[in-house]
Amino acid sequence: MTHLASICLLLLKIHTMKSCAGVSLKTQELYALVFVTRYLDLFSNFVSMYNTIMKIIFLSSTFGIIWYMRGHKLVRQSYDKEQDTFRHYFLVIPCMVLALVIHSKFTLLEVLWTFSIYLEAVAILPQLVLLQRTRNIDNLTGNYIFCLGAYRALYLLNWIYRYFMEKNYHAQWITWMAGMIQTAIYADFFYYYFKSWKKNERLKLPA
C-alpha cells in the first residue's frame, strides 16, 4: 500500500503540476526493468487476485510515468536531463552478474526474478543523486521518495512477522539481504526527511 501511495504521489505531481522536475527518468526505467523481470510469472503463478492486480498496477503505472516523462509535451520539457546522468549499466550489469552467481535455482525465470530483487535494491540511486543536485525539492517529490523507501522497510517487519507466525514459511535470504540493503540506502534520506519534517522546513539534502 505504501508502494501504491508512492506511485499515486508521483502521478499526482506529474499530472497536476505537468512537471517532472526532480524526478529521475533513470530510476523509473530501472523500476520498469525490475517489474518486467519480476512479474514474468504474471500468468503462470497465480497467488491471489490482489497480487495479480497489484502487479498490473505497478507495471502499467511505471510505463505510464515513463511515457509522461518521455512523450508528454509539457512534462518532457521539465525533465532535468543534464542533472540525471546516472548510467543504467552501472547498476544493471553488476546485478545481472550477481543474479547469475547467487540464486536459488538456475532457471531463466528464477535468475531474472533474482536479478529484479537485486536491481530493485539499488534502483533508487539515480533518484537520490538527482535529489542531491536539486535545490528546490517539492513536497510531492519528497513524499514520493519517502513512501518508496518506506515500503521496503515495512517489508522487513512483515518478513519478521511471517518468519515467526507462518508454519510453512521458508527463509529467503536473497530477498532479506537485498531488502536490508535497499532500506539502508534510504537511511540518509530518511534522516533529512524527518529532520525537515520536525522543523517544518522544506526538504533539503546537503551537497
Partner: peptide, 10 residues
C-alpha cells in the same frame, strides 16, 4: 509445488 513465502510477494 508452491513454496510458501518465496514468490508470493510483490
Amino acid at each position: 509445488a508452491q513454496r510458501t513465502g518465496s514468490h508470493d510477494e510483490l
